[in-house]
């Protein structure tokens, strides 16, 4: 912290710029022709962890649950099966379960790992969330076309039983809402994770600047807001833990709902 002026409001400008720069996709290392950014690196770490967790749990699985770790993973999978499979897709949900479970656990693990100080949230960048949303988008359109046939799927975008002249108008709106799903899925996850970490960072900077100013310029009163910001970090951190779970849940259940809409009868 160089060049402190003693005025906390002037001192926070430089660290906040530094903070927003730290959210850019900085290249960590080169892998042949590809540059691996910090977010991609953490995405790979999450993938490796996820595969390891599932493989270890799968090895320990028994008919009568004995192992606590395996039971935990089994319970998580079962919760998704009940909530998202049966609840949102309904009939014929069984074949979509691997996709939904992978999606949920990948996003959950990426979000939770990002909460550990010193790590990066893989889902905190648009590139990763675009990829996830694109996978989901292609998946539900593919199964929609498979279930209804190409022309049938296009027709089924507009709900059944409308008066004839209204069909093109409603079809257009429904089509727009269908295409916009790609954007909203990606941006919802990205916005929540990015904004949450930005707020945590800003609160940390506030604490640091206020406390440092109080120590360096011997004005104890300046430290008071610092203490309040410090408490705010804890509150926000608890909220972020909730958001990390909630966003994984929302992304997956929306994918499940879209699959259900695409494959089911309108």
């Amino acid at each position: 912290m160089e060049g402190l002026t003693g005025n906390p409001l002037a001192d926070i400008v430089a660290p906040i710029e530094e903070l927003s720069e730290s959210f850019n996709s900085a290249v960590v290392f080169q892998l042949g022709p590809w540059s691996i950014s910090q977010y991609t690196l953490w995405m790979f770490i999450v993938i490796v962890l996820l595969v390891a967790i599932v493989l270890i749990a799968a090895k320990k699985i028994t008919l009568v649950p004995k192992n606590k770790f395996a039971s935990m993973v089994e319970y998580g999978y079962d919760a998704i099966r009940r909530n998202m499979g049966e609840g949102a897709i309904g009939h014929g949900y069984e074949k979509h379960m691997p996709f939904l479970a992978t999606l949920f656990f990948f996003i959950l693990l990426a979000n939770v790992i990002g909460l550990i100080p010193g790590t990066k949230t893989a889902t905190g960048t648009l590139s990763v969330t675009w990829a996830l949303a694109l996978i989901s988008f292609v998946y539900f359109n593919f199964y929609g076309v498979k279930a209804k046939g190409g022309w049938g799927y296009i027709k089924a975008i507009a709900p059944h039983g409308l008066p004839k002249p209204m069909v093109p108008v409603i079809w257009f709106f429904e089509f727009f809402s269908l295409v916009i799903r790609l954007l909203t899925l990606a941006v919802r996850l990205y916005g929540n994770m990015f904004a949450g970490h930005m707020i945590l960072g800003i609160f940390a900077i506030m604490t640091q600047v206020f406390v440092l100013d109080a120590i360096l310029f011997a004005s104890p009163l300046t430290a008071l807001p610092g203490v309040v910001w410090f408490l705010f970090i804890f509150i926000m951190y608890v909220l972020e833990c909730l958001v990390a779970f909630l966003q994984a849940y929302v992304f997956t259940i929306l994918s499940a709902v879209y699959i259900g809409l695409a494959t089911g009868e309108h």
Partner: peptide, 10 residues
């Protein structure tokens, strides 16, 4: 509610 929430949120 999730579908319409997603629509409003868009």
């Amino acid at each position: 509610a999730l579908i319409f929430g997603a629509l409003a949120e868009a």
